[in-house]
Design a protein around this nucleic acid. Structure first.
Lengths: 143, 143
DNA sequence: CCCATATGTATCGTGCACGATATATTATCA
DNA sequence: TGATAATATATCGTGCACGATACATATGGG
């Protein structure tokens, strides 16, 4: 099949465009609480498990320090997290939620709910789509 | 269900992370032909339909001119496209492939094939995933 | 024809992503 | 112990995304 590709037929573009669509959907809600989308993801990771090294956060979010360091500095400046040096290993920093960062947890429930709303009520289908995408990511990373 | 969320349970993160994984998968292949991922998507759009206005490209790619103008300028600088003013409407520009931009079409086949390879041979499943994501995007944009 | 409005593109500032590189601290081993 | 390697973070440059804004051209109504 040597027919030229249309962009809407590409799996990669459907992922690319869906990601931007979600980002645009979240933006007004997130900016209301002074967050960007990646900052929100950092908070989700910390709400699950607090007091983590930068590298550890990076493993979870699939981001390197060249992205995380400035991102975390901005979040520290906004009073959402602290970045204390690890006394047991002076090379590393321990990223921890402040009270302000922890408090956003409640307010942030509207974020995930607005996506669920866009998708309708079929939770099983959402879970299936999520698992397909996670599987896709795993397969790519195994190459 | 008021349990705190783990990030890997979020649909939005699965899309976010899959998008980055694809971008990282493509990067070495694309950089070999001097392209970035968004530039590749612009080319795909133009290979399908050439001689388009910036706004028209933006509708296809879901990008505004504040993203496209600098991106297209870089592509013009790289000799991949031309950005001639439209003689019938001096406000607009006609984005067109150069010979160099057109020639990359053949070389670019390896891009989509390397993703297909990562996913295995099940074409039907790829199509289904793509359609789910397109549907997701459509639903979000209809809000 | 003239002005208000709409349309098409460009510019500016901020914040990711990421390759490449640098720096500091810790660990290892000859 | 002292050189070397490994680890953890930071810095720099380039290229998206996108809100806000500016500007030029086109269009429609008086």
């Amino acid at each position: 099949m040597d027919r030229p590709l249309k962009i809407d037929e590409l799996l990669c573009f459907s992922v690319y465009a869906a990601n931007h669509a979600i980002s645009r959907l979240y933006r007004p809600h997130l900016s209301r609480m002074g967050l960007t989308y990646p900052q929100y993801l950092v908070l989700v990771a910390l709400w699950d498990r607090d007091n983590r090294q930068v590298t550890d956060l990076g493993r979870t979010l699939q981001l390197d320090t060249n992205t995380l360091t400035p991102l975390l500095k901005r979040m520290e400046g906004a009073g959402l997290i602290s970045r204390a040096r690890n006394p047991e290993d002076e090379r590393s920093r321990i990223v921890a939620l402040t009270d302000k960062g922890d408090a956003l947890r409640v307010q942030a429930r509207e974020i995930s709910s607005c996506l669920a709303e866009a998708l309708g009520e079929d939770l099983a289908e959402i879970v299936a789509l999520r698992d397909k995408l996670t599987q896709l990511r795993d397969r790519i990373e195994k190459i």
